[in-house]
Computed example of a mutant assay.
Amino acid sequence: MQTIRQLADLRDAVSGLRAAGAGIAFVPTMGALHAGHMALVAAAKQAGQRVVVSIFVNPKQFGPNEDLAKYPRKEQADSRMLTEAGVDVLWLPPVEVMYPEGHSTNISVSGVSEPLDGAARPGHFDGVATVVAKLFNQVRPDIALFGEKDFQQLAVIRRMVADLDFDIEIRGVPTQRDDDGLALSSRNVYLPGEERAAAVALPRALGIAARAIEKGDEVVAALATARGSLEAAGFEVDYVELVDAETLADPVAGKPRRLLAAARIAGTRLIDNIAIGQSE
Rank of each mutant, 00 (worst) to 15 (best):
R187W: 06
T3W: 03
G31M: 10
I157Q: 03
G36I: 11
V139C: 02
E218R: 12
E231C: 01
L230P: 12
F62H: 11
E246N: 12
L206E: 08
V97T: 15
V156P: 05
A19K: 15
H124D: 08
I265G: 00
E114P: 03
A224V: 07
G36F: 08
M38E: 08
E66G: 14
D78A: 05
A19V: 04
L242E: 13
L17M: 13
D9M: 06
A261R: 01
V109N: 12
Q61F: 05
L270N: 03
P94R: 11
V237A: 01
E236M: 13
G16Y: 00
E241R: 10
V189K: 09
A77D: 14
G63C: 09
V220I: 11
A13N: 07
Q49E: 13
T247M: 03
S113H: 03
Y239W: 05
E148A: 00
D150K: 00
E96H: 12
E218Q: 12
W91H: 04
Q2K: 15
I107K: 11
G23R: 15
G207H: 14
P115M: 04
A205Q: 13
G48M: 12
A22Y: 02
V57T: 03
V219N: 04
G102C: 11
L191A: 08
A226Y: 04
I4E: 03
L230A: 14
V200I: 12
G123C: 07
P72Q: 09
V41C: 12
V109G: 12
L90F: 09
Y239Q: 08
V97D: 14
V220F: 02
A199P: 05
G193K: 14
E169S: 12
R140V: 01
A20E: 15
D67S: 10
A42V: 06
I107M: 14
I276T: 06
E241G: 07
A253G: 00
